[in-house]
């Protein structure tokens, strides 16, 4: 399968001489459509820098980034801005909603940046708003929303231009457990149901379960944590690949052990195991 996002030998250094900080060192990665990847690592490990480079907001010193076959590193500022609008959806920890605009206007803001796209986006907005449970809040301003609602608006905004790639920076960082899980499942569904690539930078242990891969970034270098010893199986509810070694949501049914990608899938299975358990 052709990766939607491909990064090869990316390096980025801030400063020079003794004070030089190697934020990203020789990082390569590929992300497939429908794949959800977590990038984890200690503070200051270069996660945000890597996400900025992948999102075309910062240029690497060396290396190449390609998105949907288009090489970001070869694009000028104008073309890069257009590519961000068309092909990347951003979700931020601080939501970054525009204070003057209401929910619907915030969601549609990226659509205004693509000439001729607004009318079509308006039609798409209504089902998207409904899908994210924001119908009753569509005229509310950001300061009138809860954290969970704000992040759902941010997710809807990221989806409005139908981009193949979603980049999320600590999307659950400002949310309580319940709202965090809600947003994590939302991102999971976006990857699974919409077949989009989702890259999440996070410290949140709770959303490890939903990831296809977890990349560990430390001192600017990256390694694939799930390449370590594992036993792959399929979540019987959503079909996602799950590592039995790290899966925390498990259940037994008719002497068979099942592992789930998330608590949500686990609950759905427990409620009606016969529906999801594979027939022999």
């Amino acid at each position: 399968m052709t990766p939607i996002l491909s990064a090869t030998n990316l390096s980025k250094t801030f400063g020079s001489g003794d004070s030089a900080v190697h934020a990203v060192t020789d990082v390569s990665l590929q992300v497939q459509p429908g794949e959800l990847i977590l990038i984890k690592g200690p503070s200051g490990s270069g996660k945000t820098t890597l996400l900025s480079i992948l999102g075309g907001l910062m240029r690497a010193d060396t290396g190449v980034v390609s998105l949907a076959g288009q090489e970001l590193t070869a694009l000028g500022e104008g073309a890069l801005a257009e590519l961000r609008a068309r092909k990347i959806g951003f979700v931020f920890q601080a939501y970054n909603l525009l204070g003057a605009l209401n929910v619907e206007e915030n969601i549609l803001f990226p659509a205004r940046l693509i000439p001729g796209h607004y009318a079509k986006a308006r039609q798409q907005a209504a089902p998207l708003i409904e899908r994210l449970g924001l119908t009753h809040r569509r005229k509310a301003r950001p300061h009138q929303l809860s954290g969970g609602e704000k992040q759902r608006v941010a997710v809807a905004r990221a989806l409005i231009n139908d981009p193949p790639l979603i980049l999320a920076d600590e999307p659950t960082g400002n949310l309580d457990s319940e709202r965090g899980s809600e947003v994590a499942m939302l991102l999971h569904d976006i990857a699974r149901k919409d077949n989009r690539a989702v890259v999440i930078v996070t410290h949140d242990q709770r959303i490890e379960d939903i990831a296809d891969r977890i990349l560990w970034l430390e001192d600017g270098r990256i390694r694939d944590r799930k390449q370590e010893p594992h036993e792959w199986t399929r979540d019987p509810v959503c079909g996602m690949r799950v590592d039995r070694w790290v899966a925390r949501n498990v259940a037994d049914y008719e002497d068979v052990a099942y592992a789930f990608c998330s608590a949500d899938c686990h609950e759905r299975f427990v409620a009606d195991p016969a529906r999801f358990a594979p027939t022999s």
């Binding site: 999102g55 907001l57 500022e77 104008g78 801005a81 257009e82 590519l83 961000r84 609008a85 068309r86 990347i88 951003f90 931020f92 970054n96 525009l98 803001f109 990226p110 940046l113 693509i114 905004r157």
Partner: peptide, 8 residues
């Protein structure tokens, strides 16, 4: 934010 979202 507008720039990040693609505003030229």
């Amino acid at each position: 934010v507008a720039k990040a979202l693609g505003a030229p």
